[in-house]
């Protein structure tokens, strides 16, 4: 499975945010999307998730044949957690499993999911509005993982977690990459190098893969920074 993007363009007024995105993302890999502030990472995600209309270009999935992306294919975890605050954690999970029932191959019990995400027993029946930022983020991540989308877009997902949880999440994402395309935007270079299989840079409205080849980490980092600095 591949996610193929061809000549994607997006302007805001006269500002060309995405000039010409031409890229193939492959199954089984975690892509680290790096870019400077305002480079358009979130815009790129919003385009893929069809939150905003693109000005030009297409993107589609290539399996045995090619087909357009449908809503079930994409899970988009935002940097700010978005959960319906009037439900309890358990109710939200039940609701999400209800509406995705056809796609969940081996459904587990709600508590098993909570255990998997390490959400404490006493928190499971609290209203989501009383969850901490990090816990809401966990819930958001959990429902996206349960829905099992082919493409997982993660916008700065680990920054709100404490170090222990962040490490757990990292391991979980690594375990998840088989059968999925995971694109992960971040500002933290170490995290990208540590977690991701490929580093992709968004600069001047264009996506560019940085090849590691036989560079050691230090040289690789320098190359990334050089690429990001290019005007």
């Amino acid at each position: 499975m591949k996610l193929i993007i061809e000549h994607l363009k997006k302007n805001f007024g006269s500002k060309e945010v995405l000039k010409d995105i031409d890229f193939e993302f492959e199954e089984g890999k975690i892509y680290g999307l790096l870019g400077r502030n305002g480079a358009g990472k979130t815009t790129f995600f919003n385009c893929l998730n069809e939150d905003i209309e693109v000005d030009d270009g297409t993107f589609y999935l290539e399996e045995k044949t090619t087909r357009p992306i449908v809503s079930e294919d994409i899970g988009y975890v935002l940097s700010t957690p978005n959960v319906p605050e009037f439900l309890t954690g358990r109710e939200f999970l039940k609701f999400f499993i209800d509406i995705n029932a056809s796609r969940i191959e081996q459904p587990k019990s709600l508590d098993e999911y909570f255990d998997f995400m390490k959400i404490d027993v006493e928190d499971r029946d609290k209203l989501l509005k009383d969850y901490s930022h990090g816990m809401k983020n966990k819930m958001q991540m959990l429902v996206h993982i349960i829905a099992n989308p082919k493409i997982l877009l993660l916008d700065e997902p680990l920054t709100s977690f404490d170090v222990v949880v962040a490490e757990e999440m990292k391991q979980m994402l690594k375990g998840l990459k088989k059968g999925h395309i995971i694109i992960f935007s971040t500002h933290i270079m170490e995290l990208a190098l540590d977690l991701c299989d490929e580093i992709v840079i968004l600069n001047k409205g264009v996506l560019e893969k940085i090849e590691k080849k036989n560079l050691d980490n230090e040289h690789f980092k320098n190359r990334i920074i050089e690429a990001l600095k290019e005007e």
């Binding site: 998730n49 069809e50 939150d51 809503s71 079930e72 994409i74 899970g75 988009y76 935002l78 978005n82 959960v83 319906p84 605050e85 009037f86 509406i99 995705n100 509005k129 429902v143 829905a147």
Partner: peptide, 18 residues
């Protein structure tokens, strides 16, 4: 404020049938 704000970020919630 309490519902659609969060839920509209989920693709499945924007499914026409939904």
């Amino acid at each position: 404020m309490n519902c659609d704000h969060a839920m509209l970020t989920y693709r499945i919630y924007r499914n026409p049938n939904v």
